[in-house]
Simulated assay, not measured.
Amino acid sequence: MRIILLGPPGAGKGTQSARIVERFGIPQLSTGDMLRAAVAAGTPVGLEAKGIMESGGLVPDSVVVGIVADRIEEADAHNGFILDGFPRTVDQAAALDRMLAEKNLALSTVIEFSVDEDALVGRIAKRATETAARGEPVRKDDTPEVFKTRLTAYRTQTAPLSAYYASLGMLETLDGMKPVDAVTGDLMTVLERHVRTAPATAAAIS
């Protein structure tokens, strides 16, 4: 089962990803982690990325897709994976689709957590206040100003992915404002349906 989770920062993607990993035994793949691992391992794509980063450039989509392509060939991803932080744009999504098609693979589903952004800002502000009250350092990302900037970036760059995957008939939307366990219940219902309806031929490689 190959899954993409969509939703703005604070929507609960990390929490739900961990529960998918536990339930289905497929890895959560972070593009940042994969990029660092490829550079450390000195793979051809990793060396290309290293050269670009050392020169101060942004790693192009083609290199990121190449790193994803290498990673999903590893044994732990043979039964599927969850992509975390990628794709971020429609161009990246199209490139990912082409790469998977070349491997005779396809995404199983794309799940979006629908949330109220104003409520999210309030939730993050409350968390920052409670953290400070305990005398613990507040994460930079948890300050309301930084969080609002991240939301704006998501809305501009990543939100259009919803329409892209909806046009392909792949998008499923869940209410991300429900209690965490209720969201998990809805999520598992969707994923179990995909497991039951997966073609036998796909099951051998998914």
Score class of each variant (00 low, 15 high):
P87F: 01
L96V: 07
T109L: 03
L151K: 12
K13I: 15
R71S: 06
L120E: 04
V64L: 03
H194C: 02
G46E: 02
A153W: 03
T156L: 13
E74Q: 11
L120R: 13
A40M: 00
G122C: 03
A75Q: 11
L168R: 15
A77Y: 05
K140P: 00
A153T: 15
T43F: 06
R127D: 02
I205V: 15
G10S: 13
V115H: 07
Q157G: 01
L171A: 13
T189D: 12
E145N: 06
I72R: 01
V65D: 02
V121M: 05
G66R: 00
T197H: 09
L161K: 09
E112F: 13
T43N: 01
P144G: 02
I72F: 03
L29Y: 15
F81W: 15
L83T: 06
M177Y: 03
M170C: 06
A198T: 09
D181Q: 12
L5H: 05
A204L: 14
P160T: 11
R139S: 10
Q157V: 12
K50P: 00
E54F: 00
R193P: 04
R19K: 13
S114N: 09
M170D: 09
S162W: 06
G185N: 07
F86E: 00
V68W: 01
T129D: 15
S30L: 12
T31Y: 02
P8D: 08
I82Y: 06
L168Q: 13
V110R: 12
R139A: 10
T156A: 12
T129H: 09
A203Q: 13
V195G: 06
L191G: 05
G42A: 04
Y154M: 10
T197W: 08
A40K: 03
L5I: 15
D61A: 01
A166G: 07
A204D: 11
L96R: 03
A159I: 02
R196A: 12
P137E: 07
D61F: 03
T129K: 14
G85V: 14
G176F: 13
L168A: 14
Q92R: 03
A38R: 04
A128P: 07
S108C: 08
R134G: 05
T43Q: 05
E145F: 02
V39Y: 00
L191Y: 12
A198G: 01
A40S: 10
D181W: 05
K13V: 15
A202P: 00
L96K: 02
P87W: 01
M34E: 03
V110E: 14
P27G: 12
G185Y: 08
S206D: 14
P44S: 03
R193A: 14
M177H: 08
V110S: 06
Y165G: 10
G122Y: 04
K103F: 01
M177A: 05
I111M: 09
D76M: 09
A49S: 05
T189A: 12
S17H: 05
S17G: 15
T201S: 14
L161W: 10
P8E: 11
R134N: 07
Y164F: 15
A204K: 13
E136R: 10
G51T: 02
E130G: 02
G10Y: 14
T173R: 14
F81M: 03
L96C: 03
E130I: 02
I111H: 08
F86A: 00
G7Q: 15
R155T: 13
D186V: 09
S167P: 07
V195F: 06
T189L: 06
K178N: 11
F147C: 09
G135F: 09
G14Y: 12
D116C: 01
K178P: 05
T129I: 08
A125W: 07
V59P: 00
F81I: 02
